[in-house]
Computed example of a mutant assay.
Amino acid sequence: MPLPSIGLISHGTSSGEGRRVIEALASAVTEDLLSRGLAQEVMLGHVDVQQPDVAEVLSALPHDSPVILVPLLLSPGYHMHVDLAEAIRAAGGADGRGAQGGGEREARRTSESRDIRLTSTLGPDPRLAQILAARLPNLEDEDQVVLAAAGSSDDRANDACLEMAESLAHELSRPVVAGFHAGGGDRLGDIVEQKRGSGGRVVLSSYLLAPGFFQDLASALIAESRDILTPPLLLDRAEAPSLLVEIVRDRIISAL
């Protein structure tokens, strides 16, 4: 099989710092994949807010060799199951699924269709819990740890966040609950108010990939309190966590 081309697909953000850290992750992934001989080229695109969009990425990447799309998203929700799947079908992919779900199944293809494969999202993954744990301060016995997630109208995305809360609880050997800014899950603001009654600090573990709107909301939620908010998973534009690069690489290998 010829080397695949890779489309790294982020959500997109209007935050300048958010864009820079996503670009840093894409750069680190590109260097890793090319040095290992796993890709012929890598291109960054977005499902919302920014350009190029998914259609532009698929148009720009070679049509005569496999294309693997990796959603730089933490949970599988609407963007994964609708936006990306529809873009793949529109570009000539067989059914928009490819290796979705960890590479267990390759899409059926006809001679006229393109070989476009969609991997699973970055999360849930136990390695993300390791990064989240490293972002936390030294915890006191009374501290209440809350996984602060964006939330979604898609229950599959919220369920994935609940799974990550369990992974973080296992990593820390202490309870962790998940709270959501939006969608159908338990509201983050309500959980913070409830946990404040325990007497300890509320420590919000930011389950976001990059700075932006939801990180700002979480920051406002704990303003003028002794509660704590950790940075998102990507906090330094100069260096992406090696575990995140490893997760992306594993998603691609699963689709080969």
Rank of each mutant, 00 (worst) to 15 (best):
I6H: 00
G7S: 03
S10W: 05
H11Y: 04
A24E: 00
L25E: 01
A26W: 09
S27E: 12
L33T: 04
S35M: 03
L38F: 05
Q40R: 01
E41N: 03
E41F: 01
V42D: 01
V42H: 01
H46S: 02
Q51W: 06
D53Q: 11
D53F: 08
V54M: 11
E56R: 15
V57W: 03
D64T: 12
I68F: 13
L72F: 03
L72H: 03
S75D: 03
G77D: 00
G77I: 00
M80N: 06
G96K: 00
G96Y: 00
G98N: 08
G98A: 06
Q100I: 08
R108V: 09
R108G: 02
S111D: 14
S111G: 06
S113H: 07
R114L: 15
T119N: 14
L122F: 04
L122S: 03
P124R: 09
P124V: 07
P126E: 13
A129E: 12
A129W: 14
A133Y: 12
R135V: 06
N138H: 14
L139Y: 13
L139H: 11
E140F: 03
E140G: 12
E142T: 13
Q144M: 09
V145G: 02
D154R: 10
D154A: 14
D154S: 07
A160M: 07
C161N: 02
M164N: 01
M164S: 06
L168H: 09
L172C: 06
L172T: 03
R174G: 09
V176Q: 00
V177S: 09
A178H: 03
G179R: 03
F180E: 09
H181V: 10
G184Y: 12
G184C: 13
D186G: 07
D186Q: 13
R187A: 11
L188P: 11
G189Q: 15
G189I: 13
V192N: 08
R196S: 04
G197E: 12
G197W: 04
R201N: 04
V202D: 04
V203F: 02
V203R: 04
S206I: 09
L208D: 10
L209C: 05
G212Y: 09
F214T: 02
Q215S: 10
D216S: 15
D216W: 11
I222F: 10
I222A: 12
A223K: 13
S225L: 04
P232F: 10
L235D: 12
D236S: 10
D236K: 04
R237L: 14
A240D: 15
P241S: 01
L244S: 05
E246Y: 05
I247M: 01
R249D: 08
I252V: 15
L256H: 10
